[in-house]
């Protein structure tokens, strides 16, 4: 009885502990960022999830896709993308892939390749200029005519790749490491 009384008196603190412990479990053993989810891990890590996408057209050509949210939240909403980056679960990545695979993709030319990228990446970019010269952004068009006028294209399938970005004191590097990938077909 006394225990129940003291539990009632400290119920809010117990709730905080339970939530924080679950959050810590998910951030240590799953992909949840320590920054979010009620575990009070803000400013505890520089690791951040990074999502890239490569689309494949019906003719087999591959294109580089910019995974960003858009105005009016179409086709990708800001909240969904933010939540996916904070906790990139498989089903969220699949949904993201589906959203990209079914939307129109608007091309944009990459005007300049940054000089302070590492040599290997820089050379890879130069070696495959067709792929890296243009980046496609998922966009919503009210009708097909507008999409064609905007040079937008469609893809058959998309490969969503999940990376981690982190800072390394040795060499002062901002570096990304591959974690996993999934493929979604339209």
């Amino acid at each position: 009885m006394k225990f129940l009384q003291s539990l009632e008196n400290r119920l809010v603190c117990v709730l905080l502990i339970v939530v924080a412990v679950i959050q810590m479990y998910n951030s240590q053993f799953d992909t949840l960022t320590p920054w979010k989810g009620g575990g009070f891990g803000m400013f505890s890590t520089n690791k951040k999830a990074n999502i890239t996408a490569v689309g494949y057209k019906a003719n087999g050509d591959s294109i580089l896709i910019n995974v960003v949210a858009n105005k009016f939240d179409l086709p990708i909403s800001k909240n969904f993308l933010k939540s996916t980056l904070n906790y990139p679960k498989e089903r969220k990545l699949e949904r993201l892939g589906k959203l990209i695979a079914t939307s129109y993709l608007q091309p944009d030319t990459i005007k300049e390749t940054p000089k302070n990228l590492d040599k290997r990446t820089y050379e890879q970019l130069k070696k495959n200029p067709e792929f890296y010269h243009t980046i496609y952004t998922p966009r919503h068009y009210q009708n097909e005519k507008m999409a064609i006028a905007g040079n937008a294209t469609k893809i058959e399938r998309v490969k969503i790749k999940l990376y981690n970005t982190d800072f390394y004191e040795e060499g002062l590097l901002y570096k990304k490491s591959y974690l996993k990938e999934i493929e979604v077909t339209n």
């Binding site: 890239t52 940054p114 302070n116 990446t121 790749k161 570096k175 990304k176 490491s177």
Partner: peptide
């Protein structure tokens, strides 16, 4: 860099 699907790339 965030948009590039290249493992171990860095700035």
């Amino acid at each position: 860099l965030n948009a590039l699907p290249i493992h171990q790339s860095f700035v």
